[in-house]
Simulated scan of single mutants.
Amino acid sequence: MGSHRRLAQSGFDRGASSALGVLSAAAAALGAVSAVPATAAPHDDTRAEVDRLYEEAEQATEAYNSADERADTLREQVGTAQDRIARQQERVNGLRERLGSLAGAQYRSGGLAPSMALLFSRDPEDYLAKASVLDRITAHQAGELKELQGALRELAQERAEAAGKLAELEKSRTAVGRHKRTVEQKLAKARRLLEALPPGDRAAYDRASRSGRDGMPAPGSGPVSGRAGAAVAAVRSALGKPYVWGANGPGGFDCSGLVQWSYAQAGIALPRTSQAQAHAGRRVPLSEARPGDIVTYRSDASHVGMYVGNGQVIHAPYPGAPVRYDPVGMMPVSSVTRP
């Protein structure tokens, strides 16, 4: 019954600090597991414990993905700001050189005061004309320089702010990575607990994780062509690939990474996280789902898969389970989105 948990969609804007809060709660919840030996709880409790661990782990994965995506965005913003600053600096340098040339010419001419230069000029009218032009040019260039310097200061401030945000986010991502490793350790323990169950109980757990909900309407296949068809072909090609933390293919996937990668093969760029993917198109009722539609699960859209027809989705379930088919009603559906 594993599900990919992610931050709320607004968490994409809140960034890594929200992710850390989610992961801290996850780590606190998981910490109690280490004190419970495999034989200390009934089999039902063990299965429930494993299921909770999977949900927390997937939530951590989506939180990490959100922080990672925001870091990429900030890097682009910083790079753009730096490019703009470099261009502005080049213009300022050129203007300074031109102004310096004018100053040098005045110095070489003796640096006479305007009244004295007029007195000794052989052609006072020509001097006055040139002086007037020179004044206009100098004033224009000085104004332009002032404007560019102001813009440069603003851009430098933007760059500093962006760099500060990026540095803060990098620290947050490091912390997220630490939480991720902690959750992975707990997942390994949860896996051992599951494997320690009798074969019949392990089989029952797997059946429970793949069962549909009673009364869930079964949408039909519907037409599939164009980019949706290409995305469905891509997601089918990923069947059997392993669930991998924070991966979006082609060798392994987490839940949102699988959906993002599949649509990328069809030429459509989707957001990285499941909650963002839930808003990456037009919402449709589950009863009208068509192959290629994005199906998100649970009230927080913490897990996602792709509907492929005949009442089934293909998704990356949880660590230890490969990309596979499951009933579309395997858990409460949050939304169906058609990119």
Results as ranks from 00 to 15, higher is better:
residue 306 M to K: 10
residue 249 G to M: 00
residue 313 V to Y: 06
residue 169 L to P: 00
residue 289 A to T: 02
residue 284 V to M: 05
residue 282 R to W: 00
residue 13 D to A: 14
residue 177 G to D: 14
residue 112 L to M: 10
residue 234 A to T: 05
residue 104 G to W: 11
residue 16 A to H: 05
residue 224 V to Y: 02
residue 9 Q to P: 06
residue 278 A to F: 11
residue 307 Y to R: 01
residue 258 L to Y: 08
residue 328 V to R: 00
residue 48 A to P: 03
residue 262 S to M: 09
residue 50 V to I: 15
residue 268 I to E: 07
residue 283 R to T: 12
residue 281 G to R: 09
residue 25 A to C: 01
residue 122 R to T: 05
residue 273 T to R: 01
residue 24 S to F: 08
residue 64 Y to G: 03
residue 333 V to F: 08
residue 249 G to A: 04
residue 46 T to Q: 13
residue 86 A to K: 07
residue 325 Y to V: 01
residue 41 A to W: 11
residue 69 E to W: 04
residue 11 G to I: 00
residue 91 R to D: 08
residue 325 Y to N: 02
residue 53 L to V: 13
residue 107 Y to D: 12
residue 54 Y to L: 12
residue 45 D to S: 07
residue 97 E to V: 14
residue 47 R to L: 09
residue 4 H to Q: 14
residue 109 S to A: 15
residue 103 A to D: 12
residue 128 L to W: 08
residue 14 R to Q: 12
residue 215 G to E: 01
residue 35 A to W: 00
residue 66 S to Y: 01
residue 67 A to N: 02
residue 56 E to A: 07
residue 12 F to V: 11
residue 36 V to S: 04
residue 133 V to D: 04
residue 240 G to A: 03
residue 241 K to Y: 07
residue 207 R to T: 14
residue 246 G to S: 13
residue 335 S to L: 01
residue 276 A to G: 09
residue 13 D to E: 14
residue 337 T to G: 04
residue 302 S to G: 15
residue 19 A to W: 04
residue 216 M to A: 02
residue 198 P to W: 05
residue 132 S to D: 14
residue 257 G to Q: 01
residue 76 E to F: 11
residue 135 D to A: 11
residue 61 T to W: 00
residue 90 E to A: 13
residue 212 G to T: 07
residue 21 G to V: 10
residue 207 R to H: 13
residue 83 D to H: 11
residue 246 G to T: 09
residue 127 Y to A: 07
residue 69 E to S: 01
residue 124 P to A: 12
residue 146 K to Y: 09
residue 28 A to M: 09
residue 210 R to S: 10
residue 17 S to A: 15
residue 106 Q to W: 05
residue 227 R to I: 10
residue 4 H to W: 08
residue 316 A to P: 00
residue 121 S to F: 02
residue 132 S to R: 12
residue 98 R to E: 15
residue 3 S to G: 10
residue 310 N to G: 09
residue 115 S to Y: 06
